[in-house]
Amino acid sequence: MIFHLSIDCREPRRVAGVIAELFGSNIVVPFPPVGNGASFMALAGDARNSGVEVYPRGMGLQLVDGVDEAVGVAGEGAPSATHFAMATPLDEAQVLAIGAREGWTARVCNRGGQFDVIEFWIENDRMVEVLTAPMQAQYLRLGSVEQGLAAV
């Protein structure tokens, strides 16, 4: 199951609004962790808290040594912003072991004090947020529209 994905575009607020309209929810919230106030999230308002993070064009996510979470970077040659959050039936140790087996960074991170994810860096340059069952419960409880994802 995919919880959210991200894209970059020229007009993030406008694009998030259109996506929210297509969801039938018209729910758009700021997404402050990436883009310094220029990113937004369109929320479907469904039971899975499905959403699309919309970053400014040229904004990407990068794995940085010594930093505990993905870092938003902008400019020519920036990495891709595209990522998604997915559910897994595996436990944390199993997910981390797969990352170690492949030689890819996999680490547990907390998103704004709201919920945990495992940043799973495919080939160490494309992030997938993997959520174990306890993380899914956090995401569904604290990442909901009702609880104000804008606080993340």
Rank of each mutant, 00 (worst) to 15 (best):
Q94P: 08
G51N: 05
P89W: 01
E102L: 15
A87N: 11
A70E: 10
V117G: 01
A47I: 10
C109D: 08
G66N: 10
T88V: 14
C109Q: 11
N36E: 15
R126G: 01
M41E: 14
E102A: 13
A78Q: 07
V52E: 09
A87W: 12
P79F: 01
E92Q: 12
N110Q: 11
I118G: 04
G37C: 04
G37F: 02
P33Q: 01
P89Y: 03
L43E: 09
G37L: 08
I122F: 05
G103C: 03
V34C: 03
T132H: 02
A47G: 15
S50M: 08
A47K: 11
G113H: 04
W104I: 09
V108F: 01
N110P: 02
P89S: 13
G72Q: 03
L61R: 15
F115S: 06
D125R: 14
A81T: 10
I98P: 00
T82V: 15
R101I: 04
V34S: 04
A133I: 12
R48P: 03
G58C: 05
D68L: 05
R126C: 06
P32I: 06
Q138I: 00
V108L: 12
M135S: 03
Q136L: 00
V95Q: 07
A97Q: 10
R107W: 06
G77Q: 10
Y139N: 03
M86D: 05
V130Q: 03
G75V: 02
D68K: 14
G72W: 03
V67D: 11
A78D: 11
S39M: 08
Q62M: 12
A74C: 07
R48E: 14
E123A: 13
G103F: 02
V64S: 07
A74H: 13
F84G: 10
G72Y: 01
D125K: 13
V73C: 06
A137V: 09
S80G: 09
G112E: 10
G99A: 15
I122C: 13
A93R: 13
E69D: 06
G99W: 01
G45L: 05
P134S: 00
A97C: 12
H83D: 08
G58M: 06
D91A: 03
R111Y: 03
G35Q: 04
R101D: 13
Q62Y: 04
A78C: 07
M86G: 11
C109W: 02
D91L: 04
T105F: 04
